[in-house]
């Protein structure tokens, strides 16, 4: 599937400021609200869905990748974002290492679609060490999209 269909320059965020797990999730969510992808009045509902999912099992995977995601009917279609924090933060990752690359997806409960598949496909791309390294060296959003 074409990852770029769900991620555009509007939803690629560099240099996150937050230094905590919840802070990063909230920051990406706010950036998505500012980009007009999620309604402001739905912020609490979406945040809650993301945190509930994190509580079940951390979405911090290996090699600096985290995939915070949730299903909620506060969105009508798949909303996806890719964010980078070069310094990395503790995201309760499976390998215990800091997470640098965050792929967030929020998908509707009631509508079927390749939502988890999207997350999996992008994770598969990031499985290649060279792509991860290059992502952390990128300067512009276009460079990030090119790598995907």
């Amino acid at each position: 599937m074409d990852v770029k269909k769900a991620i555009s320059t509007d939803t690629v965020f560099q240099d996150l400021k937050s230094t905590t797990k919840t802070g990063v999730i909230e920051e990406i969510l706010d950036l998505l609200i500012a980009a007009g992808k999620i309604r402001k009045e739905n912020r609490a509902e979406v945040l809650n869905a993301l945190l509930v999912r994190e509580n079940k099992m951390s979405t911090g995977m290996q090699h600096g990748i985290a995939i915070p995601h949730a299903k909620t009917d506060a969105v009508e279609d798949l909303v996806a974002a890719l964010a980078i924090k070069k310094e990395g933060i503790d995201f309760d990752a499976l390998d215990g290492k800091p997470s640098h690359i965050f792929i967030m997806t929020i998908s509707p409960v009631k509508r079927t679609g390749p939502h988890i598949q999207f997350l999996a496909e992008i994770s598969r791309k990031l499985n290649q060490p060279s792509i991860r390294e290059k992502l952390l060296l990128t300067q512009t959003k276009d460079e990030i999209l090119q790598l995907l």
Binding site: I116, Q117, L119, A120, E121, S123, R124, N127
Partner: peptide
């Protein structure tokens, strides 16, 4: 494609 299978099952 194990990423896809494993994440959906997870």
């Amino acid at each position: 494609y194990e990423h896809v299978g494993r994440l959906i099952v997870l």
